[in-house]
């Protein structure tokens, strides 16, 4: 984005795709106050696949929603590729999401009455690309994720893994610089989940693009460049997958000892 509609951070780091600084998100008031995000600091680098992990209710999805401007933060600074998302109006956020972010959802959210190619063409149509051109580009993108033989299939005729690949193609088709995914493997079996993550690494990730994946699925932790641990609305730490594996192992050992009644 050449110019941020809502204003710019002074000079964003060249390798930084997104950053959140002291971000808070509260729901309710007084006695019903819930701090979904409680001072989150996080940086996402260009060309990396960042996994955001943590137990249910820790704020992962809220963080993802705030990052891409579909939820307003209560306070804090959010910057994506030089644009201060927290300073944009709702209309600017809509345009910003359209131009900068690709979305992949747990339940795929493919429109059931459209074919794979037509579903992938939707973001292009939102960009006012003519129908024929949009569908043609959509077919090319489907080919990139190995779905060239399923372009005219309706979602109900596709397996979960195939639907997710169509969803990946839909997220990629406008060449967004940031792709956010919410539990992309939750509805898939282990093998299919691995295949989908392989597609992310091999086809979606580029040196300029970043991918943020919210997940519970420890089977895919090995695909992340870094893993951000979240608890109670805070980022506990961001680790490489090796560091994270060590931490997880330690946590399991401690839990095992506690269960066995050992100190």
């Amino acid at each position: 984005m050449d110019e941020a509609p809502g204003g710019k951070q002074p000079t964003p780091l060249p390798d930084l795709a997104a950053s959140l600084h002291d971000v808070h998100k509260n729901y309710g008031e007084a006695s019903t106050l819930v701090r979904a995000l409680d001072g989150v600091d996080l940086e996402v680098r260009r060309g990396e696949l960042l996994l955001l992990v943590g137990p249910s209710g820790c704020g992962k999805t809220t963080l993802l929603s705030v990052l891409c401007g579909i939820l307003d933060a209560t306070s804090g600074a959010i910057e994506v590729y030089g644009t201060r998302v927290d300073q944009l109006t709702q209309e600017q956020k809509t345009t910003f999401r359209r131009d900068t972010i690709g979305f992949i959802f747990q339940q795929f959210n493919l429109l059931p009455s459209l074919t794979s190619a037509e579903n992938v063409a939707v973001p292009l149509l939102i960009h006012q690309v003519p129908w024929e051109t949009a569908v043609s580009q959509a077919r090319e993108t489907l080919a990139e994720v190995g779905m060239e033989d399923r372009t005219e299939f309706f979602p109900e005729k596709l397996s979960g893994g195939q639907q997710q690949r169509v969803a990946i193609a839909r997220a990629m088709v406008t060449r967004p610089r940031l792709i956010v995914c919410d539990e992309p493997t939750a509805a898939l079996d282990g093998t299919t989940g691995h295949m989908v993550l392989q597609v992310f690494r091999e086809k979606v990730l580029t040196s300029e693009r970043a991918i943020v994946i919210v997940t519970h699925d420890s089977r895919i932790f090995s695909f992340g460049d870094r893993i951000a641990d979240m608890r109670d609305g805070r980022i506990l730490g961001v680790h490489s997958q090796q560091e994270h594996a060590v931490i997880e192992e330690r946590a399991l050992q401690i839990a095992g000892r506690q269960k066995a009644g050992q100190p």
């Binding site: 359209r98 339940q107 959210n109």
Partner: peptide
Amino acid sequence: ERFFGALKAMGVSGKT
């Protein structure tokens, strides 16, 4: 709802 939500997230305006 989830499809409308997805479209909104992807940048479809209220007018559309």
